[in-house]
Write a protein that binds this DNA or RNA. Structure first.
Lengths: 347, 347
DNA sequence: TTGGATTGTACAATCGATTGCACAATTTTT
DNA sequence: AAAAATTGTGCAATCGATTGTACAATCCAA
């Protein structure tokens, strides 16, 4: 059943030509007569010939596969960013390989190494929260593999990047909360070695300052990204009767944890406490009350990263200063912070 | 900056050996003295040698890359199935390539072709709802690439498969609804050319028969998998005052659409109408009321598929009858069908 | 001491496709 | 009609690693 696959030599033999002529014919070389090209194409179709990309890439010293590394596939944000990358790559010859790191540094290093071993030709990645070193990324760059980082940046690394304007997003969200009459606004932040979380923190701080709100360090909780951790902290706050007016979480998941904890404890949202997240995960629309958050245009982000990478790959402009594109997130105001028009389910 | 990567020839030259000796040394051939092996290993490390997998696979006529094709990455079910596949593959030499089809047949064919072109060594896939033909899968099999299907099966295709016991799951869910006192139970089904949806339909029908409920064809709605479509149908029902006691949807997303439509129309869930889904997507826990559904053990499914594929790849047991593993889903009973103990939010 | 076994290494072909160079045949130019 | 340009094709090397076969050196036994 398993017959050996047809090669250009098989075509050559059948047509009494040489392999090189066949190769040229298939690549539409002008050195080959139209008639011969036709004959070769027909024979190729007849033999069900499929080019061996391994051999092609080996010979050409380059390939057409792009690798994507993300922390988690089941985040709306990342799966949609990947969809964006795909939408750019699909009409081209490039193919996609995807790995997820589960937010683990070791896994990230291993995935990257796998890509390098397989002579992947370009990499789009978003680092894991567990990642603090950049040597693995530098290794890839030194191997001559272009890398584009998106969303999550590591400080002081000179690479192409596609980012959200986290500062402005956080600033506007905090301003919105203040406008709704919330004053004592806590912030659930992420790991601060990732620039995006310091940016969000700074946007939050700037809005407070502009409104002349005297914040206190205790209002800020670092490294609270998961639902469970946020829930624990919220429960702690409730126990200590240290209740904020509002919580602005740097992640929808931590916002969810807080929302559930306060709801269970009998607090009315948004009347007694306002809650806002970041990322516009689909579930934010379904919670009750529905959750205010920020849309990050993940697909557009992915598209942009893909374009940037192809640019680098095709005109290997070594040494050129890194490019950087920034998208401004959009405020999605829902019920969890709309105190000025109280809704029915709050009763 | 971009120095040519080291090859075995570079190592050979530095050590005044031949490339073949270096190759054998790196592969721990017993024909090479321990001392030489040591020297080679050291030189390799020193030169930062990395084997070129392209060349290796070309020579060996086989590789170690496994491709996964799923309809959508952002479904909890699929992303967790992939996590399961990864958990099996990570400790091995195999690597993973992932594609998503967005439920589109054309994209599925293209992805599969890409895999074949790249001489992928094995494929795990779940077909798109748009897929009715199997020629593309047969092409892969004819090329000698083993394929394992999971979750979504196409009828009459002889391949390895890992499935859910959709029949039993649907049967038990329907039984649960009947026990809760629902009688006129509608079913939102999927495209019936996919076995899993006929299985769910049949499980539903069997439970009705056992309870001697005289169902009518109008109770069954085919090809309702998305939130939007379910919502439209539910709104139609409401308009026509054709209100079921309960809806058992073959997908969590269509269950969600129905839930939202009936809730907005002022119906009390679960008192006036019960709603159940299938898949235990994370959001089902967050709706109000929380949604009854079926857990499908996606990770275990993925693990099982991966193991089955490796089995095929390593002992190419051509012609052996296809294997098949079946998992029984678990009923997750939540508030949306718990009529016998009515909850507060229903008031 | 000689013949056979064992050990360590090298040569060269191979996987499938690409490509610089050479050469013959044909056409164009002078 | 001879020289030059163009067209069509083949040869052979190449990408990097693997592997069958061959050969030399060493060791052991008879």
């Amino acid at each position: 059943m398993l017959v050996r696959k047809a090669t250009i030599h098989d075509i050559a033999e059948q047509l009494k030509l040489s392999a090189s002529t066949v190769s040229r014919a298939l690549n539409n070389s002008s050195r080959i007569s139209i008639k011969t090209r036709e004959r070769v194409r027909n024979a190729a179709a007849e033999l069900n010939y499929m080019p061996n990309h391994l051999a092609m890439n080996l010979r050409k010293g380059r390939g057409t596969t792009i690798g994507v590394i993300v922390p988690r596939l089941n985040r709306h944000f990342f799966s949609h960013a990947i969809a964006g990358v795909e939408s750019v790559l699909n009409p081209t010859d490039y193919n996609l390989m995807i790995c997820q790191t589960n937010e683990d540094y070791e896994t990230e290093v291993k995935s990257l190494q796998t890509f390098i071993n397989h002579r992947i030709d370009g990499i789009i990645m978003s680092v894991a929260t567990g990642t603090r070193k950049t040597t693995h990324i530098e290794t890839a760059l030194n191997e001559g593999i272009p890398v584009v980082l998106f969303d999550r940046m590591i400080k002081n690394l000179e690479v192409d990047q596609v980012l959200n304007d986290n500062f402005t997003g956080a600033f506007e969200m905090t301003k919105h909360l203040i406008e709704q009459g919330y004053h004592k606004i806590f912030h659930f932040s992420g790991p601060l070695h990732l620039e995006l979380y310091t940016d969000r923190l700074n946007g939050y701080l700037k809005a407070l300052k502009e409104a002349s709100i005297e914040y206190r360090d205790e209002w800020i909780f670092n490294d609270v990204l998961t639902r469970d951790k946020a829930r624990m902290i919220a429960e702690e706050l409730i126990k200590n009767k240290n209740i904020p007016d509002a919580i602005f979480a740097a992640s929808d998941f931590s916002a969810l944890g807080a929302l559930l904890a306060f709801k269970e404890a009998g607090y009315l949202i948004p009347t007694q406490i306002g809650i806002a997240g970041f990322a516009n995960e689909p579930f934010t629309e379904l919670t009750s009350p529905s959750m205010t958050t920020l849309e990050q245009y993940s697909e557009e982000l992915g598209r942009s990263a893909a374009r940037m990478l192809i640019e680098r790959m095709e005109y290997k402009i070594k040494g050129t200063a890194p490019n950087s594109v920034v998208f401004k997130p959009k405020l999605i105001i829902r019920d969890s912070t709309l105190r000025l028009q109280v809704k029915q389910f709050d009763k």
